[in-house]
């Protein structure tokens, strides 16, 4: 499936994480969201929940070559990006459950998480809202003479937003260290991408001179290689890249959306192409089982941490609006 618009240097970043590490992180993301989904069903999530189950390879592969000082911009569907960039599952779960120990004191929920200390500059309630910020983060790194990079995740729906074109133009003009990762899960909210997207997304950068590549977004190594190449080029001053990672959203747009607008056959075919199973196939079954057990412990601990934390009360509403005088 991978098609290279412009030949790029061989992968350098992909060796930074092992098959084992990638599988573990994907498993963590999967179990985190399954657990959050159950909590949502039990009425314990006081806000909307957009699940990325089935898309874990894009986040884990997309962050494989990143350092803490690199930046990531995420979306409304962003738990997997947060975890891949280093968010603690316990504090993230606490945020979803509206607890004081959450990253935004339990006031923001899943669409409003930003952890600047980890380079996670925000999930976002606005489709495309992170794209201009990513452009600014990449400019900031360039202006400071750093060799850090910014990875901007967005869905195929965001390619219809004007800021996408604006950002491609600025990134190309200024050769910004910016990697656009379009996580194409094939559904824009409640309608299929055919309703929203003309042409081919991976070629959107062509006239700007931005290399584009389309990869199998359910293959964590393919994503890691493509993004890793782009990251290496960006660090060296080679400018931006557009990566389209084709994947599939297993669930509805939001928890509670039964996605009756989709064919069962289509869903089942994609579920059979599970990125987590594919990542796990590289491992010895015993090793995989051991990792699964580790992840279960971590998720149980995260849930317990969240449940044992205080529910955020009205006294927190007014905090964090302006710098302390």
């Amino acid at each position: 499936m991978a098609e290279l618009k412009t030949p790029v240097a061989p992968a350098t970043g992909s060796a930074r994480t092992t098959s084992r590490g990638r599988y573990r992180l994907m498993r963590l993301s999967r179990r985190f969201e399954e657990t959050a989904h159950e909590q949502f069903g039990d009425g314990q999530v006081p806000g909307p929940l957009h699940l990325s189950i089935g898309q874990e390879a894009v986040a884990v592969g997309g962050c494989a070559a990143l350092r803490k000082t690199d930046a990531v911009l995420s979306t409304h569907r962003g738990h997997h990006h947060c975890l891949a960039k280093g968010a603690a599952p316990d504090r993230l779960m606490a945020e979803l459950l509206g607890r004081t120990t959450g990253y935004s004191r339990g006031r923001g929920g899943s669409m409003h998480v930003a952890i600047p200390a980890l380079g996670l500059l925000g999930t976002n309630g606005i489709v495309g809202g992170g794209i201009p910020i990513a452009t600014g983060a990449a400019y900031g790194m360039q202006a400071q003479g750093r060799d850090d990079v910014t990875v901007c995740f967005f869905g195929e729906g965001a390619t219809g937003a004007g800021v996408f074109g604006e950002a491609l133009n600025v990134a190309a003009l200024w050769r910004l260290p910016l990697i656009f990762v379009c996580e194409n899960n094939q559904y824009v909210e409640l309608t299929p991408q055919e309703i929203h997207v003309a042409g081919e997304i991976w070629r959107r950068g062509e006239s700007y001179g931005i290399p584009g590549v389309r990869v199998d977004g359910n293959d964590v190594n393919a994503v890691a290689d493509a993004v890793g190449d782009a990251v290496a080029r960006a660090r060296g001053g080679g400018g931006p890249t557009l990566v389209e990672a084709v994947t599939y959203r297993w669930f509805g747009h939001y928890a509670g959306d039964r996605a009756a607008y989709r064919d069962d056959d289509e869903v089942n075919a994609w579920r059979a192409n599970d990125p987590l199973v594919r990542a796990g196939a590289a491992l010895d079954p015993a090793e995989r089982a051991a990792l699964d057990a580790e992840v279960e412990k971590e998720i149980s601990a995260a849930l317990a941490f969240a449940q044992q934390s205080a529910v955020t009360g009205p006294e927190a509403i007014a905090l964090d609006h302006y710098a302390a005088a």
């Binding site: 794209i131 910020i133 990513a134 452009t135 983060a137 400019y139 900031g140 850090d148």
Partner: peptide, 10 residues
């Protein structure tokens, strides 16, 4: 956005 992102990274 250049300002928002720039401010976020220092």
């Amino acid at each position: 956005g250049l300002g928002v992102g720039g401010a976020a990274v220092g």
